[in-house]
């Protein structure tokens, strides 16, 4: 494996104050190579969401280091964290997290707005991303005029529009029926194949786990297993 895009060493995360401390991550070591598709599994309370927040630069480890693309990002300020999220990371959430009063096109163009891309170019890129996800006819719709699968595709378009190195997905199929869920997973793998983006998916769904190339299981704030998945020829 070449230099990993994600390198985590001895990461702990402790919540609480006034003498009441709850350790959620108890020392995690993890390397993820560029272009991997990783499923992060574990029961609730296992620390997988906390790990995802740290991976996504939304949170910082209490102890330990996190190198993203060779850069130590474990001690960044909120403004620097925002810059890393904007430039290197894309997010997909279980409940989509689209802005309700904005159209699909405006939602997808939003990261480009914060990146300072001029208006015309911004909407051209957002439109291209939406067309890639077969939403060319839905660009002026607001989220509440779209189905669950369509909303998640808008969210995926938003996550890729800034050409991130890593897409972090938190239960991306959790709010979808199984058929739509499969469609979303297929789409993510297609995008992975086209761009070589690294996919890290938090899930407790074994079907999603089976779709990934690598499965990392967590329990009580620690990684308990880490295995490559042997795909059957017909799996995708």
């Amino acid at each position: 494996m070449t230099t990993p895009v994600v390198a985590i060493r001895g990461v702990t995360r402790v919540y609480g104050e006034n003498g009441m401390y709850v350790p959620v991550l108890r020392g995690v070591d993890l390397d993820i190579g560029a272009g991997e598709i990783v499923a992060l599994l574990g029961p609730s309370g296992s620390g997988k969401s906390t790990l995802l927040n740290i991976l996504g630069c939304l949170d910082r480890p209490t102890q330990g280091t996190y190198h993203l693309g060779g850069r130590d990002v474990s001690t960044l300020s909120p403004t620097e964290q925002a810059w890393v999220r904007l430039r290197y990371l894309g997010f997909i959430f279980q409940s989509f997290h689209l802005i309700g009063h904005a159209t699909a096109l405006e939602n997808v163009a939003m990261p480009l707005y914060y990146a300072g891309v001029p208006r015309k170019e911004r909407f051209a890129q957002a439109e291209a991303a939406l067309r890639r996800l077969d939403l060319g006819e839905r660009m002026d719709h607001r989220p509440n005029q779209l189905s669950g699968g369509q909303r998640q595709r808008v969210a995926i378009a938003r996550s890729i529009v800034n050409r991130p190195r890593i897409i972090l997905a938190d239960e991306p199929t959790g709010a979808l029926d199984s058929k739509t869920g499969v469609e979303v997973l297929t789409l993510l793998r297609e995008l992975h194949d086209e761009t070589g983006v690294t996919l890290i998916v938090v899930t407790h769904d074994e079907k999603v786990a089976a779709w990934a190339d690598r499965r990392i299981r967590m329990q009580d704030g620690k990684v308990v297993s880490d295995e490559e998945v042997q795909h059957a020829a017909a799996a995708h």
Partner: peptide
């Protein structure tokens, strides 16, 4: 608040 959270997650800086 939720909208602010979304904007922040996708990379809006505190200043923006």
């Amino acid at each position: 608040t939720h909208e602010i959270g979304i904007r922040s997650a996708i990379g809006a800086s505190p200043r923006q």
